[in-house]
């Protein structure tokens, strides 16, 4: 593992991610916007691979690019009565753009002035087995939060089913 990540691969995937986000915000058809979001999720999954987080890259593709995108597409299709409803206005808002630009300026200022701790990179990147040790053993320290997050997902699933089932069908 070198001192930094591959420049060309980073530039390609960063441009793909930003391009997907811009495409999502500028497409008039809401279905196309959902597919642009899927493209951004896949690019970020590639960036995770570049950061030698291969387990998270797979989870990113499965959860975001797989489950969340399908959920989005189904909700879009369920809530459109006519095909023409998918095409919308661009909803440009100068105040929102100003706020986002101010946020970006503050972030740029903060990142360029911050000093990050210099850590010697490991000769061999930690792999998925090491992540499993961190998450699933008492020594790793993340076992209890992991179980609680499983409970969060269960509660969210029950609530989602409860809200979508409708009143008249019992």
């Amino acid at each position: 593992m070198g001192e930094s990540v591959n420049t060309l691969a980073f530039l390609v995937m960063a441009l793909a991610a930003i391009g997907g986000a811009v495409g999502m915000l500028t497409s008039r058809n809401i279905m196309y916007a959902a597919f642009w979001l899927l493209w951004t999720m896949l690019s970020v999954g590639g960036l995770y691979l570049l950061l030698s987080a291969e387990f998270l890259a797979l989870i990113q593709v499965m959860v975001y690019a797989g489950a969340v995108s399908v959920l989005m597409l189904f909700v879009i299709m369920l809530t459109l009565r006519r095909r023409e409803d998918a095409v919308r206005s661009l909803d440009f808002s100068p105040s929102a753009a100003l706020l986002a630009a101010v946020f970006l300026g503050i972030m740029y200022y903060g990142i360029s002035n911050a000093t990050f701790p210099e850590v010697a990179l490991l000769a061999e990147a930690p792999n998925t087995a090491d992540l499993g040790v961190v998450l699933f053993t008492m020594e790793g320290g993340w076992l209890l939060p992991f179980e609680i997050s499983a409970l969060v997902l269960l509660a969210a699933m029950v609530a989602a089913v409860w809200w979508t089932k409708g009143q008249d069908r019992r």
């Binding site: 915000l25 916007a33 989005m72 440009f92 808002s93 946020f103």
Partner: peptide, 25 residues
């Protein structure tokens, strides 16, 4: 570089969340 990229993505998401009029968007 990664922090800058994620700041750009976050700003784009912030703009979309504040400006779009469809709940799904």
């Amino acid at each position: 570089a990664f922090l800058g990229l994620s700041a750009v993505l976050f700003a784009l998401g912030l703009y979309g969340a504040l400006s779009k009029r469809s709940a799904v968007m």
